[in-house]
Amino acid sequence: MQLAQHQRRPRLELQLRHHPDHLHALYRESQDQTERARWHALWLLARGQSIPEVARNLGYTDRWVRQVIHRYNQGLPMKNLRHENKGRAPLVPPELQEPFRQALLQPHPRDGLWSIRHAAEWLAERLGRPVDGRRAWYWMRRLGLAPLRPRPRHREADAKRQEAFKKSSF
């Protein structure tokens, strides 16, 4: 049986595009913590420290330092780009939120009570696309409202017995 030989990874070299003093300035001026840590690691590497030394000095792993070197060598930004992600636009745009709220405060034109289905239909008409009832519920709650409907009653409920129970339970 023949075993595969272990191959060493090629040596990872920092391809400096900045002078070490410039790396130090970038490290000192950075406001973002992630970006600052990355510039700090690069500055220490440019000053001649090894990957394990930098990892130990900064409290990170060797793997993290290697990822920073790869990132720098590829010309990727040192910033934490998650902070710049604005996210998806809200389902109900700001100019439609107040009209939606005002519509919900009025009685529904069909039967007087707003249901989730009614709210979803109202939004779908204004937005020009189908709206799921869960999204309508979310926006009703977000605007501080909830659909009003009477509590369900059992078909065979006896009103006299229920009144008697209420009186005797206090």
Rank of each mutant, 00 (worst) to 15 (best):
L143R: 04
E163I: 04
A120E: 05
G48F: 07
L12C: 02
P147V: 00
P77C: 10
A46K: 07
T61A: 10
Q162F: 06
N57F: 08
R88E: 14
P90H: 12
E35F: 15
S50D: 11
P93A: 09
P52H: 07
L81E: 09
V131S: 04
P94H: 09
P77A: 07
L104M: 14
N85P: 01
F165S: 08
R153P: 01
R11W: 11
E13N: 13
A25T: 09
T34D: 10
R141E: 10
A157V: 05
R151C: 03
Q7Y: 11
E125M: 03
R71G: 01
N73E: 03
R9D: 05
Q49L: 15
L23T: 00
H40Q: 14
L44E: 01
W139A: 12
L81I: 01
Q106W: 00
P90E: 06
K79G: 04
T61S: 15
R88G: 00
Y72V: 00
R82C: 06
I116D: 01
Q102D: 13
I116E: 12
E84W: 08
R38S: 11
P150Q: 10
R47Y: 04
P77Q: 09
D32Y: 03
F100M: 14
L143K: 05
R134F: 12
Q15L: 14
R126K: 14
Q106G: 06
F165C: 08
P93R: 04
L145K: 08
H108I: 01
L123P: 02
R129Q: 13
R151N: 00
Q162G: 06
L12K: 11
P109W: 01
G144T: 07
E125T: 03
H22W: 11
L127T: 10
E98W: 00
R17I: 02
Y138R: 15
R126F: 03
W43D: 12
M1A: 13
L12F: 04
Q102H: 10
R17A: 09
Q49R: 08
L45E: 06
V54D: 07
A55F: 05
P20I: 10
L123Q: 06
R71L: 09
R56C: 10
M1H: 13
L3T: 14
A119I: 11
K166N: 08
W39G: 08
H40R: 15
P93Q: 04
A37D: 07
